[in-house]
Amino acid sequence: MNLKIAVCVKSVPNPDQFSSLSLDPVSKTLIREGIDSVINPADLHAIELAVQLKEQYGAHISLISMGPQQAQKELRMGLAYGPDDAFLVSDREFGGADSLATSYVLAKALEKAGPFDLIILGNESADGATAHVPSQVGIIMGLPNMTDIVGFSLDENGKTRVKKRLQGRYAIYEAELPLVIGVAKDINKVRTAGMRGVLGAKNKPLTVWSVENFEDLDKTRIGLSGSPTQGGEYHTASFGREATELKGSPEEIASELSNIIRPILGRE
């Protein structure tokens, strides 16, 4: 079996630095200045699954990402884990995309770089956390798709057994390729990329595509203008507690306290 696997990868702000993130009140986008970017943690599990399948059956793994030019750094890091090549879709016209516009562009990129037998995504991103993209990519591409996957195996005939997490239970599905899955972090333990992987990553092909590289792109479906989801107003939630100071003698305070507690306990 020689599989063609695609893994969608997103460059996200380092979750360890989320406390330093803020929102631009006008554009309603994250202010990323001074924040490191990393591969979306769930996507590392997607890469790990692809590499395990490659070790087991032999495969060609392509990383696909939509993001700014700087996301090449994350793709290089992703290549260190074992994938063979990477494609970055990057253009200002793609900026401000919601999950649907993102899924559309990813689907177009997957079609262009493919066809693939298996498309693996992290179930959700650490920053947006919508978990929309895996299903939307599958729907747009007309492929069967499943999300919240915590187990995946493949037999010699190309038939898959997919373990999907339900609320408090699991369901096992059998599915045929091609297939799109969104994997949860529980699916595997991500390996540490070795030195050979890190030092070999620079020589692997990394292709950058802009809007011009797509002949049949529907421009009404990309970027901010192609996004049906628009940011509303932002409010800062207050988590402070209201305090009431009781004054008087200890007996008076105890009596007053009793008057407050009794109704709460349902006792008059």
């Binding site: 290089r76 890091m77 260190a80 540490t192 990329a193 030195m195 890190v198 620079k202």
Partner: peptide, 9 residues
């Protein structure tokens, strides 16, 4: 970039 990747690893 490569050394930063190596450092992270």
């Amino acid at each position: 970039e490569e050394r930063e990747m190596l450092r992270k690893m």
